[in-house]
Computed example of a mutant assay.
Amino acid sequence: MNQYLHLVPEIKEIVEEKNVFIDEPMRKHTYFKIGGPADILVLPETIEQVIGLLKLCISKKVPHHIIGNGSNLLVKDGGIRGVVIKLCSLNQIEVEEDKITAMCGVLLSDVSKSALQNSLTGFEFACGIPGTIGGAVTMNAGAYGGEMVDVIETALVLDEQCNLKILTNEELELGYRTSAVMKYNYIVLKVTLKLKQGEYEEINGRIKELTAKREEKQPLEYPSAGSTFKRPVGFFAGKLIQDSGLKGKSLGGAAVSEKHSGFIINKNNASAKDILDLINLVQNTVKEKFGVELHTEIRIIGDDIAG
Rank of each mutant, 00 (worst) to 15 (best):
L278R: 12
R231L: 02
M182G: 07
A272R: 12
P25K: 00
S261A: 13
L294N: 07
Y144I: 08
Y186E: 08
G105I: 13
L73M: 14
E147Y: 00
G146H: 02
K213G: 01
V83L: 12
V191S: 02
D304Y: 15
I152C: 06
F263G: 04
T138C: 07
A102D: 06
K194R: 08
I133P: 02
H65V: 15
C127T: 11
I133L: 02
A143P: 09
F229K: 01
M148C: 03
D274C: 01
N140D: 03
I93V: 13
G205F: 09
N140H: 02
I301Q: 04
G291L: 12
Y31E: 10
E45M: 14
N2P: 12
L116F: 12
I298C: 03
F123Y: 10
L281W: 07
D243Q: 08
H64G: 12
E17W: 13
G262I: 07
E16T: 15
K165W: 14
L195P: 09
G175Q: 01
N280V: 07
Y176I: 08
G70R: 01
F235Q: 02
G122K: 04
Q117P: 04
I305R: 10
E13V: 11
E202R: 11
T154L: 08
I22H: 08
A155N: 10
E24R: 14
S112F: 14
Q197G: 09
